[in-house]
Design a protein around this nucleic acid. Structure first.
Lengths: 247, 247
DNA sequence: GGAATAGTGTCTTTAAGACACTATCAA
DNA sequence: TTGATAGTGTCTTAAAGACACTATTCC
């Protein structure tokens, strides 16, 4: 079946990042303009090759993240999403990408990174709808990443990763509304976030004001698994995207 | 930052398989005995390198699966789990593994495959507990795979992948009990599987008998997403494994 | 009739959804 | 006092958990 001198085919590894944040109460993805071939000039997810043979994949993701966002490494949520390795996905050869999901509070305008001539926050909706074209299979990766975030919001405390260290319940609700692309009932939302013990805990006696009654401040609690979860409302058939439940 | 002639470090890609099945109403994992170095003679997950540069990752997983189980490719559930690429995980160098989860109905005793001198079904519990030692980081991969299956049973129709084409509700309950490692209330289970419309549908007028009242037969329905889901009971603190909910 | 397995019905509790009012601040 | 934002309470419905009996077959 295989030669005596057969040796496995090497591949090149990249990390690609779906970096999500909220800007003006809407979900945005960070995209870069590709500075080199292939797909020069086209929008793409930030990412790049491993630096050297010993670099850990997660370290590479952190490195790319800080190159693109100039962010303190400890403060953002970063997790592996999936591998994309179809043989035809990169014209340069066999390039396998480990996609990561990164989530951060409202970020400043990005700085141009090493491989990018330009970087910008783009509304997630523009990527999902196909209005913005992406290089490689990056639209698929971005779509998977956004869907992953939407699901994880239901069962984990991920939403707090979109917030500053302390935040109001109204701000937290805006996170859910922006990521899910729905509107939520304030009263039920208050009830549910407080029923999930350990999700958020009061942050001192601090308050903040913007004209009306001052809001209580909270910070992320110790629990990462929400119980009961905050199930997102089923999209009402007329929505933007229908969840595929049929086989 | 990088040389003019810098080029990205190549890595070797493997696929590893967490193959789950039910034997004697207990969850089992397929393990092989390694026939070559490193870890010669130690138990490991089935898997191997990509065959040639153009081979798709999923195809490689299917190939390894049929090499180990001699199974019709179309009948098993196979999905990507995650990537394991820590630089120290393989003494041969930088070997990155794409782990897959495979689930199949009760399988015959395995046939020895290409790289394996022996293969055997091992109770999942023996792997989770550490009673069986695995090569590389395969215990971690197997643990992640089992946990993935446990969670997916809650929200998807995955359980039917453990069953033959037609099955009884009692058999389906055994799947849940074996994978979760819990006992379930028969009456509530009947109610819940039937409340999840599209999960199972009656299979003709067929019945099967084993001494008592004949059972109705069902087959997998069109829905892959269960609503309402079948939430697994919270492990009661005294259980084998406690779910980490704290950070 | 008895053993064995299949299948169902009810009550209570928990959580979700829908819905409208009160509270606290600044100007 | 008005405008703005924060926060709460109730009723109804859906689903989970606990629990015990009836149904159909073979012997």
């Amino acid at each position: 079946m295989q030669d005596d001198v057969w040796s496995p085919p090497p591949v090149l590894l990249t990390v690609d990042l779906v970096i999500l944040t909220l800007r003006e109460s809407r979900l945005h993805v960070l995209l870069v303009e590709r500075g080199g071939d292939p797909f020069r000039g086209m929008a793409a997810l930030p990412g790049g090759f491993l630096n050297h043979d010993g670099e850990e994949i997660l370290d590479a993701a952190h490195r790319e993240l800080s190159e693109e966002t100039a962010l303190a490494a400890g403060w953002v949520h970063l997790e592996q999403l999936a591998v994309y390795g179809d043989s035809g996905r990169d014209p340069r050869g066999r390039v396998v990408s480990v996609a990561h999901l990164a989530i951060a509070p409202g970020l400043p305008d990005p700085v141009a990174g090493t491989d990018a001539t330009d970087a910008a926050w783009v509304p997630a909706q523009a990527v999902l709808s196909g209005e913005v074209e992406l290089a490689f299979d990056h639209r698929r990766i971005a779509t998977d990443g956004i869907e992953h975030a939407r699901t994880k919001l239901e069962f984990s405390a991920l939403a707090t990763a979109f917030c500053e260290e302390s935040f109001t319940i109204a701000e937290l609700q805006q996170v859910y509304e922006a990521v899910w692309g729905t509107e939520l009932d304030t009263r039920n939302f208050y009830r549910k976030v407080q029923a999930a013990k350990g999700f958020i805990i009061p942050a001192g006696t601090d308050r903040r004001t913007t004209g009306g009654r001052p809001a209580r401040l909270y910070r992320a609690g110790p629990k990462t698994v929400l119980f009961p979860p905050l199930i997102r409302p089923a999209p009402s058939a007329t929505e933007e995207n229908t969840r595929g439940e049929e086989e």
